[in-house]
Amino acid sequence: MKKSKILLGVAVIAVTGFFAIAADHMDAPAVTGGSNDITDFYAFQGQNTNNIVFVTNVQALLSPTDTQSAKFDENTMLEINIDTNGDAIEDLVIQAIPKDGKMYFFGPIAPAQTGLSSTVRSTGMASNVAITAPGANAIIATNAGMSFFAGPRDDPFFFDVDQYKAIIAGTATGFENPGTDSYAGTNVLSVVVEVPKSMIGGSGKINSWVETKRKQ
């Protein structure tokens, strides 16, 4: 009994390690499969070339059925970090927190403090948007040149991760041609924010990254 439990534990760890390879999908034991698990982060010039778009996706590999019940966690803040002077320390943040069916946005604004702990910069409230229901048309809010979306989307990531895992495990020597997109047919929960470049430094280069932070 005890031995089989231990074996099961080893198997679970092995399986966790096996699946822990993607953009950032299910990347680490403490967050894998949780509502705080970041799957991907994108930053690109918008349709309006005066703007930058930030995309943060959470909750990996949602099937269409899973998507119907998938929810943003009201105790999890998504925080986009922006470094405008090249020291890899955030000078500005954009915070997104869900509450009662809406996603609330704050920033871009200087954080109260840098690093691992954050408080909501409520003086920097930017907007809020109703979270789009699965299957419904995308609900978009706009304010001061910014645009906001929150809700389920197709996972934009594409990768033959299954073949990569086989290569790492030593059971294959290379990729197949054509490969198979392991993320085809799956969804994520997305938060999309488009902001004028003038709000995040104006010109030159920025460094950016995204964090999930849990309310204590």
């Binding site: 990347d27 680490a28 999890t76 909501v120 990254w209 849990r214 309310k215 204590q216």
Partner: peptide, 14 residues
């Protein structure tokens, strides 16, 4: 939205 939020996950490049 009072309270302190503490980091659990982060990412930048894929």
């Amino acid at each position: 939205f009072a309270g302190t939020y503490v980091q659990e996950d982060q990412m930048a490049r894929p």
